[in-house]
Write a protein that binds this DNA or RNA. Sequence first.
DNA 1: GTGGTCTAGACCACT
DNA 2: GTGGTCTAGACCACA
Lengths: 122, 122, 122, 122
Amino acid sequence: MNDFRQDKAIYLQMADRLCDEILSGKYGPGERIPSVRELAVYLGVNANTVVRTYEALSLQGIIQTRRGLGYFVTEDAIDRIVNARRRHFMDETLPELFRQMQLLDIPPETLAGKWEEWKQGR
Amino acid sequence: MNDFRQDKAIYLQMADRLCDEILSGKYGPGERIPSVRELAVYLGVNANTVVRTYEALSLQGIIQTRRGLGYFVTEDAIDRIVNARRRHFMDETLPELFRQMQLLDIPPETLAGKWEEWKQGR
Amino acid sequence: MNDFRQDKAIYLQMADRLCDEILSGKYGPGERIPSVRELAVYLGVNANTVVRTYEALSLQGIIQTRRGLGYFVTEDAIDRIVNARRRHFMDETLPELFRQMQLLDIPPETLAGKWEEWKQGR
Amino acid sequence: MNDFRQDKAIYLQMADRLCDEILSGKYGPGERIPSVRELAVYLGVNANTVVRTYEALSLQGIIQTRRGLGYFVTEDAIDRIVNARRRHFMDETLPELFRQMQLLDIPPETLAGKWEEWKQGR
DNA sequence: GTGGTCTAGACCACT
DNA sequence: GTGGTCTAGACCACA
């Protein structure tokens, strides 16, 4: 229990995991996810931390709450997750990649070549 | 003290940090870096862990030992670090990037366009 | 200190007040608002409650954080507040109004007439 | 006990509640409502506050006192409550609504359209 | 100083 | 049981 990295907020790591589990089909659209207290005990974190995770995912429309019943995966959760990750890739991953390329003096043409190599290797 | 991630060997994380500090100029070429015991106490890790770090960096020619004096940054440390990181970029960062792009269904042409955007934004 | 109603979360009431103060010009676009701890002491609430208020307003793009400096009113804060309130009027106020009208057996035509009356009375 | 708002006199809030309970059938026409002292203890308020509540409702003809027996719901209590609330709707709710519409720059024609929408949605 | 996160424990309303 | 909110107090990174 409680095997989280130190370089990212626990509640965000938990959100990522839940999204992975939704994408993998562990929790399908419309299904109920573990209650706040259940998950808190299971992962060895404070209930408030789980609350923050669920709030964040609610705001993104990936899960929704039903008072007194629990949290449920929304019908379009998968679309929303993929879109959010695509956005993150464009706004975070790519700029960081380009920053590194600049620092390491790697020309952008390299990317196209490496992409071909990689596709072959699969 | 001792704020290391759990997902990577501590001695490798320490090596990364030392490289960062060399690149930043904190320890210039030819300068002495902290002794094994000093660094072990300072970072709250076992002295053997520091030894492994220094051995790894020695093997890469980034630092070198002088009997009875300590470890010193080599003259071409910066080049070696940049080259090592360039290799890491090619062998680790890029494949991971391409894997993500495949998962998110992002075409490779996007990279060239985004690179131009990013260069403009700077 | 601490004069909040019991029928609505304190952090939401605080958010409403802050929006009022932004609309009134007390805090203009680009200006800094009180720090989390300042406001907590001033209003006699817990710092975490202020944090929730500021987080909620951040998510709506009404304020934004600058690490180590504080929270600042965004340039388009006023537009966002007005739009949010208009949306609330349509989605919350009106349905509640109509529900009451149905309960009290008040015909919808009444509204137009009363509107004219009210406009004259001003 | 004693969960009243701060922004409205407690005796008026108690009167509202009693009216709700009459409308809901908890106390039917002709039935006896709790004694002043009973209600005061139950709600944790001063007995004089309950007296003011009952006086106010008596003046509106919603309840009536029978010496030595207690207060009783009048036969036409429900009509009187509905009428009072209709008056409140006209004199308080609507002007406040119109004030908001003016502030938010919402044209009065919107009401008719939204009313149709709402009726459909039920 | 600033904000950001986490824990522990409490009370509430709703089912 | 469920989620929603609040308090008290702690430690962190950033400026």
